[in-house]
Design a protein around this nucleic acid. Structure first.
Lengths: 315, 315
DNA sequence: GCTCTTGCGGACACATCTTGTCCTCAAGGC
DNA sequence: GCCTTGAGGACAAGATGTGTCCGCAAGAGC
């Protein structure tokens, strides 16, 4: 039951099936446990229907739960990782937070946290743009409170423009932070890189949130027409092989066509970024190009020639 | 048990008899329940003797976790980021840890943490190898205590081998975790990918730590001869341009030669990995190859031809 | 209207756990 | 020494939690 409580705290909405899965019990038992929590005056609401689920209301103070081993390790690893990059000034903040957390934890967990904190270190990545933590905090608050927010956005093409949007979610993908927001002026969803955002100021106006699935939309948008340059390939390699080369390097969408071939879609806002992605899977097998912008094709053919010529002598 | 906990919170000291009376159970049961609370890390102290009794230690009220704003944001961002990948089972652990920490923070910071926790989300990267958090914890403890540790390592070339090393530091770079250790059998430093490590068991033997700078060694080793395949290029582009394309994709070492040219060194344990790196900077300007293994050159020339041919029709 | 999904809850068998009742031991105060 | 208090092992009986059924209700989408 304590685990159920902590699960309910950790996410806004859970389905009975998910809870049963996480807790390793059947859904019937989950229902019974929820019932018990309700009998103890915990405000657990359940909504029926396709979009149903369980939700823990707020307002009531919960018993002081303790972190378990995995959570302590998660905290330590998270803070160490956060120190590594992406957000400016994070290294000191995370390390001091780690030290303070260590004091508060039950004695059993203290060595765990201390060990990870002292033994682990994140190597900062050169070239990753730094994000202002205060900007992130303000944007997060506006997301949560459904407040319209205004900021300057330094786009690649149109220079700096003042935006006024309905922020919905912050997303992070490989050290970069993105803001998913609805732009009423353009009447469409937009994704902003937080490191290109400055002068954030909440407008103190509320908006009614629109429904959209955050992560999948961001992934979609990476391959959608939002970015100017798109490439679609048919590769003579299994989708598993292609996906496994994605590890840490490539992002795109893979659709298997047959056991030994698949279709891959990339999109980016510059041909140079596409080049890297295409090259990463070009060696897997022969492939054909289904779609590409002229600039991208020109860049890739030119680079392909350069590669061939430059390395020909070393064969 | 929840009633027992709330009773213990409501008064400083209780005798076992009183608690049994209030709860309508026997004293034996009270002792058992107290035992259970202790196993959940609730600091219940019991003193024997005439003036004895049970007392709930600190932790019942808000612990003195006085984080400042930046630290609170660091915790939230770190945990959200950690949920995104690299360590298996991390998503649930970090989210529940975030929820629990929220309960513990001073009221002023609670909205901050909640906002970031609810608004931010990490998009898991497909294909990133998962690391066992317990393995990380054990390795971290051994690093801290200077204990020799043994494990099975599933290397790329030599299959699985049992190693027995002096662990020094855990390093993380772009979602991967590495163990920097000294291998007495080989009398040299080694870097192990933690996701390839299984069956970790501390040997309970101490060693005297050797001096070495962790992060820089790891970076060095990426371009050193430890990896079989190395490429050295001279690029007609400024070192600034080259470094800025490194962002998130490329790792290597850049030495400026002149304002408009520089030398770049890559190393990896497979030619395919080098291909991506080389392609990422090949479009910046013309370049010459100073060094490359035959396999690498063959792969790159072949891929270059493929790229040129496949994209020629889209120019 | 229909169907599908989700939450809700009763009935029952079974395994597990808790509880109560013993017991001994340790520690502190008188 | 004596008493009181907490700590904990052993064991049987009873309570409780769980899984597997079942049907029902409410919301969403077609």
């Amino acid at each position: 039951m304590l685990r159920l409580l902590s699960l309910l705290q950790s996410r806004r909405e859970w389905s009975g099936h998910e809870l049963a899965d996480r807790l390793g019990v059947t859904e019937r038992t989950v229902r019974r446990d929820v019932e018990r929590l309700r009998s103890l005056d915990y405000p657990v609401t359940g909504t029926t229907g396709t979009a149903g689920g369980y939700r823990l209301g707020s307002g009531t103070h919960l018993p002081p739960l303790q972190l378990d081993d995995d959570e302590a390790i998660a905290v330590a690893l998270g803070l160490v990782g956060a120190a590594g990059g992406g957000v400016s000034g994070m290294a000191e903040s995370s390390m001091s937070a780690l030290a303070k957390l260590e004091q508060v934890l039950p004695a059993r967990l203290r060595p765990q946290l201390a060990a990870v904190g002292s033994a682990a270190e994140a190597i900062p990545r050169p070239g990753v743009p730094q994000v202002d933590p205060d900007a992130l905090a303000v944007l997060a608050r506006c997301c949560r409170n459904h407040e319209i927010v205004a900021f300057d956005y330094h786009g690649r093409q149109r220079g700096t423009t003042r935006r006024r949007v309905e922020p919905h979610q912050l997303l992070t993908l490989s050290w970069r932070w993105y803001l998913l927001a609805f732009d009423p002026g353009r009447d469409d969803w937009r994704i902003f890189r937080v490191d290109r955002i400055t002068s954030v100021s909440p407008a103190l106006h509320r908006f009614t949130p629109r429904v959209l699935d955050g992560p999948s939309y961001l992934l979609e948008s990476f391959v959608s027409a939002q970015y100017e340059h798109t490439v679609v390939l048919t590769v003579e390699a299994s989708s598993v092989d292609v996906t496994s080369t994605f590890e840490g390097v490539v992002r795109g969408i893979v659709e298997p066509l047959s056991p030994s071939s698949c279709k891959v879609r990339f999109s980016a806002d510059s041909p140079a970024m596409l080049l890297t992605q295409v090259a990463a899977i070009a060696h897997l097998g022969s492939f054909t190009v289904d779609q590409a912008t002229p600039e991208t094709a020109a860049l890739i053919t030119q680079t392909g020639e350069r590669l061939t010529q430059a390395f020909a002598g070393f064969r």
